[in-house]
Amino acid sequence: MYYAILAYHQEGVVQSWTEEEDQALMTELLEVNDRLVAQKSLGPAARLGPTEGAVTLRGQGEGMVIDGPFAETKEQLLGLYVVDFPTIEGAIAAARDLRRANPTAVYEIRPILLYLPGASLESRAED
């Protein structure tokens, strides 16, 4: 079964990290990433950009594009991991490993009801 591990954190805290602090955290998170890849349990993972660069589409019909996400929370969605485990306990264990690397983050584990891997995306420079 596929599960999404959604990583939440306060953007101000994340943005306050020095380059060295951020690199140290990423090194620890990539160790968990590599272990999950070796176990063939990790699918796509992404670190999201800041919410100030995001927009939200909401409303009826074509919808209206408004600036940023407006969630009633102090934490913002920082990134996500897609994992494959037979039960939610395996996904929880993976989230605990991620939390050991980043103990100030909050991790939500949610079953994925439909998983379509899509096409492989290559990075494209903006024209």
Rank of each mutant, 00 (worst) to 15 (best):
L77G: 01
V83K: 09
I88N: 00
V32C: 07
A91Y: 00
L48Q: 04
R100G: 03
G61R: 10
S16R: 08
M64C: 04
P50F: 05
V106K: 14
I88G: 07
A45T: 14
V37G: 02
L42I: 09
F70I: 06
A4W: 06
E89R: 10
A94C: 11
I112V: 15
Y107W: 11
R100M: 07
S120P: 05
G61P: 05
V37P: 00
L42Y: 03
L36M: 13
E19G: 12
Q39L: 14
E19H: 01
G63Q: 10
Y8C: 00
G63N: 10
A119E: 15
P69L: 09
L57N: 01
R96G: 01
L116Q: 13
D22F: 12
E20A: 15
I88K: 14
L30V: 06
T18K: 02
V14H: 05
Y2E: 14
K40Q: 14
E108D: 12
N102S: 04
Q23Y: 02
E20N: 06
A46M: 12
L42E: 01
N33H: 15
P117N: 10
P69M: 09
F70R: 13
R96C: 03
L80S: 02
N102R: 06
L80G: 04
P86A: 14
L30M: 13
I5L: 10
D97N: 02
L30Y: 08
K40C: 06
R96T: 12
R110L: 08
F70K: 11
A93H: 11
G79Y: 09
D127Q: 12
L114C: 00
A38Y: 01
G49W: 04
G79L: 05
P103F: 04
I66H: 04
G61T: 05
R58P: 00
D67K: 10
I66G: 01
Y8W: 14
T27V: 09
V55D: 03
L48K: 04
A105T: 01
L36K: 07
A4N: 10
G118E: 09
S16Y: 03
E11S: 02
I112Q: 01
L80Y: 15
N102A: 11
I5C: 01
Y115H: 15
G61M: 01
Q60A: 13
L78F: 03
L6R: 09
V14I: 15
A24G: 02
D84C: 13
E11Q: 14
E108C: 03
A71G: 03
Y115T: 06
A24T: 11
P117F: 09
E62V: 07
T87I: 02
E19D: 10
R99L: 11
G79W: 07
A105P: 00
E72R: 07
L30Q: 05
Y3E: 11
E52A: 02
Q76G: 06
A125T: 12
Q10P: 00
L29H: 02
Y81K: 02
I5A: 08
G53E: 08
L77W: 05
E52K: 13
D22E: 07
A125Y: 09
R124A: 13
P117A: 08
G43Y: 10
D127R: 12
E20W: 01
